[in-house]
Design a protein around this nucleic acid. Structure first.
Length: 423
RNA sequence: GGAGAGGUGGGUGAGCGGUUGAAACCGCAGCUCUCGAAAAGCUGUAUGCCCUUUACGGGCAUCGUGGGUUCGAAUCCCACCCUCUCCGCCA
């Protein structure tokens, strides 16, 4: 949710934002009209309520005829108020229905552009690996290691479901432990979060009402399966005034995530890149408005990239263009890691700044030194997604014999082995 | 899933149809006292929204949530949610 004062005082800024993001499903003039309608209906209602309140209070101290007269008047007012209440409610609903589609204000550093083609490459890290043998795709390596059984996964639950076993499982938990040990040093508190949540939680995060088709809904209870623990981590502080002045609150949430991948028919069908279910370590930060951009651009980036550098992977960082940027965010960096089998970079991380957009919806505030109440800023970032990390590790560290070198920093978490596939 | 108890402001906790947004105590903040502190005293201390170019201003709403009864509800009725106790089930 954005600050509605913008709509009243700087509609041109909103108009520019819609244009920058190539959003065409919002009519600002109509929205402004609905806002005025809503506010005037509230004014009418409240004036009547004030009158009614005065009448009721006088009844308490009146006797006899005077009292009877007042009751009659108050009765009439009460009936009118019922109608006015309904009108105000309807007007507010009509307004919110459209207003909830409004995007966040993108940061000025976000490049204008319609699609991912316009994403801006900010940095390239590490060396592109060279192979003197034909490289194999990750799913082939994984099958060879006995770590991936997609056939049985599909038989059980359909396409994009897999059994993951043996060394691939050990690899996931090695990555997890490595990341947690590193992140603990940066003040992140580990969390295991619910993966089923109420509708309000998804609305608060900004997933709803925009991206409803990505989310699994339970049939027998009014609950949804989350596609990221960002939802649960953000909602941890819903409707609270919290302490962030000293330093940002940092959480790392580990959860299984569920995604319908409704718009991805036929895309990345083979292997682990795009699954309906995968585990992820997600970072979430509540931070003051004063500190948020510094923390985002300096600390958070360094932390996320640091993990990848220690693994020795070749990756680059891009800024999502305005058209590619999710509506709820002000800025998003993706880390894209080299995928040798396809000779391209694969998105493995997403690091986003939501400004106060989510905090507004969920009423998450902090008090400044002067006692002022302000909305917090929220940041989220991928720690490791265990769908895509095994993919890039298998491919980048593969050997001619199909075995896979284990990055040195992970070896302590794998009984000091040097190779996956080693007996 | 069954039976019972309960959900009031930062906390404890009163109120159970009428000037109650809500006693009291604690906590917190400011002031007085003090060289400072403690103690004591005084003052203040919820949130959201609407209006007026905005003032230490006015109004409305909020006592788990949503409805209902009533001129009037924290107080009565209904539904739901949550917490606790007991039973059942289960990791």
């Amino acid at each position: 949710m954005i600050d509605f004062d913008l709509l009243r005082h700087e509609p041109e800024r909103l108009q520019a934002e819609l244009k920058k993001r190539f959003i065409t499903d919002i009519d600002l003039a109509e929205l402004t009209r609905l806002d005025e309608e809503r506010r005037s209906s509230i004014a009418k209602l409240e004036a009547q309520q004030a009158e009614h309140k005065k009448q009721s209070e006088s009844i308490a101290v009146q006797r006899g005829l005077k009292r009877a007269g007042s009751i009659k008047k108050a009765k009439k007012l009460a009936i009118e108020i019922k109608d006015l209440e309904r009108a105000a409610q309807d007007a507010t609903q009509a307004f919110i229905k459209i207003a909830a589609l409004l995007p966040n204000l993108s940061h000025e550093s976000v490049p204008a552009g319609k699609t991912s083609v316009d994403n801006r490459v900010e940095a390239v890290h590490g060396e592109q690996p060279h192979f003197d043998f034909p490289v194999k795709p990750h799913w082939q390596l994984a099958e060879q290691l006995g770590g991936l059984d997609s056939k049985r996964g599909a038989r059980l639950a359909g396409s994009r479901f897999h059994y993951i076993q043996g060394d691939l499982v050990y690899l996931q938990f090695a990555l997890l432990r490595f990341a947690m040990d590193e992140l603990t040093q940066h003040g992140f508190v580990p969390m295991l979060t619910p993966v089923m949540v109420k509708e309000e939680a998804l609305y608060g995060a900004g997933t709803f009402p925009i991206d409803t088709s990505e989310v699994y809904k339970l049939e027998s209870d009014p609950l949804y399966l989350t596609g990221t623990s960002e939802i649960a981590l953000l909602n941890y502080h819903a409707h609270e005034t919290i302490e962030v002045e000293e330093s940002p609150q940092r959480f790392m949430g580990y959860s299984t995530n569920f995604r319908r991948e409704a718009g991805a028919y036929g895309k990345d069908i083979k292997g682990l890149i795009r699954q309906h279910q995968f585990d992820k370590l997600e970072l979430f930060i509540f931070v003051s408005q004063e500190q948020s951009w510094d923390f985002f651009e300096k600390e958070l980036l360094t932390i996320c990239e640091g993990l990848m550098l220690k693994l020795g992977l070749h990756f680059r960082r891009v800024t999502l263009s305005s058209g590619d940027l999710p509506r709820k965010f002000q800025k998003t960096y993706d880390l894209e890691t080299w995928l040798p089998s396809e000779q391209r970079y694969l998105e493995t991380h997403s690091i986003s700044h939501a400004g106060d957009f989510q905090a507004r919806r969920l009423g998450i505030k902090y008090k400044t030194a002067t006692g002022q109440r302000r909305y917090v800023h929220t940041l989220n970032a991928t720690g490791f997604a265990f769908s895509r990390m095994p993919v890039v590790i298998l491919e980048n560290f593969q050997q001619a014999d199909g075995r896979v070198k284990i990055p040195e920093v992970l070896q302590p978490y794998l009984h000091n082995r040097a190779l996956l596939g080693q007996k």
